[in-house]
Design a protein around this nucleic acid. Sequence first.
DNA 1: CTGGTTTATTGCGCCAGCGCAAAGATGCCC
DNA 2: GGGCATCTTTGCGCTGGCGCAATAAACCAG
Lengths: 232, 232
Amino acid sequence: MEDQADVEMLGRTELFRGAPVDLLRDIQRAAFRKRFSAGDTVLQQGDAAATVYIVVAGRLRATQTTLDGQQVIIRYLGPGEVAGYAALAGGETFPGAVIAVDDCHLIGWSATAIQELMARHAGIAINVVKLLGARYLDIQVRLRELSTEKVERRIAHTILRLAQQAGRRTVRGIEIVFPLSRQDLAEMSGTTLHTVSRTLSAWEERGIVACGRRRVVVAKPPLLEAIAEEPD
Amino acid sequence: MEDQADVEMLGRTELFRGAPVDLLRDIQRAAFRKRFSAGDTVLQQGDAAATVYIVVAGRLRATQTTLDGQQVIIRYLGPGEVAGYAALAGGETFPGAVIAVDDCHLIGWSATAIQELMARHAGIAINVVKLLGARYLDIQVRLRELSTEKVERRIAHTILRLAQQAGRRTVRGIEIVFPLSRQDLAEMSGTTLHTVSRTLSAWEERGIVACGRRRVVVAKPPLLEAIAEEPD
DNA sequence: CTGGTTTATTGCGCCAGCGCAAAGATGCCC
DNA sequence: GGGCATCTTTGCGCTGGCGCAATAAACCAG
């Protein structure tokens, strides 16, 4: 039965880990499912923070856009992860957008439902604390990289991080499993697509990476790590 | 009685807001007090995340330092705010350091005590969620600024933010109440002290700011806001 | 297969901001 | 009040990486 599978899946997410089975069943009953196609907007920047999602399948991108249209990618999220922190933390509106990169399958709850859940079950609130703590840590590190490192190192770090969280071993090396353009890498590394393109070309020359249209494969991780760590 | 005053103070912090008085009393009894002089290290990067503090008086700086000694300032914190998130979120070690900028007076708890408190009182866990959510929001915005804005705008944003959270109205304008060097501003804006110095000199010329040794006063906030918002 | 769209590459010139270095200002401690 | 440490200013030259622009390659739809 599908619901049963759902319950097991929920029990493995960062949000509901450790919850007793009967609670998971309640949670599952309160949820709704939703599918999105690649490119769809799941959460819109500025909209009321009324929904929280967990990713069942597919890959999403959290971004933040300025008034003048400049965009940065805050992070990518995959199966088991949470989209819509603002709704957890009691924010009024979403500070950024979440876009489907692949075709995606999500499970969602209303903000009020989740907040009530947290109020009734401290364990879930603590899961949220851990999850936000982990995100805060990640983003601190990126802030430091952005402030102190030169572009090449930043791009290297960005790719290594993506390979870590969404890499698949292949004969050619570690392939990032979702489509990732030069522009995307630029928006994660705080640079321009031109500089990313030039950098990747140079690396390709040296056999460190292999890339195609919206594809990146890390052929020689140790060399890329060396670049990421070498001082300016 | 001093304890009574403490309890009231705790009830107004972001961490314990909304807790019933008798719980606050328990919390207060479990706490220890500690004083630090300007320049002292309160939490050391890499140390076991075993303590959480609330600032009673004074001002602190949260930083993160790289292996090669480069430093960024994550944020400043003042009265009522929490130092040592890692201990709340169940992290192993502190990802950054916290340093006293002024002479400071703090109240602290062991990580285990606070975690037990969260587990027993969902309201407190929810306060932590809100607090981490707010920090995450702040840092997202800074990440975007750092990625997309030119230095002058970034410095303007940095100063405006500091004026917002630690500004005092005076005849000369809004004064940032704690000592703040050019180097500090550089480490918050992702630039060098030289560029900060040059920029502030130019602004001083135009009467937008007035500054001295480790002092910054925003004389004409609207003009500074204009700089912060003007497109590149 | 064709035409159109999106994505990637690369040459070229320029300039914002860095890094160095040296001098100057300010505050503190004895 | 004098000496010292810390902090700030400013000139100068250089360069990393941006921005533009034009071309090329890959993909898609019909």
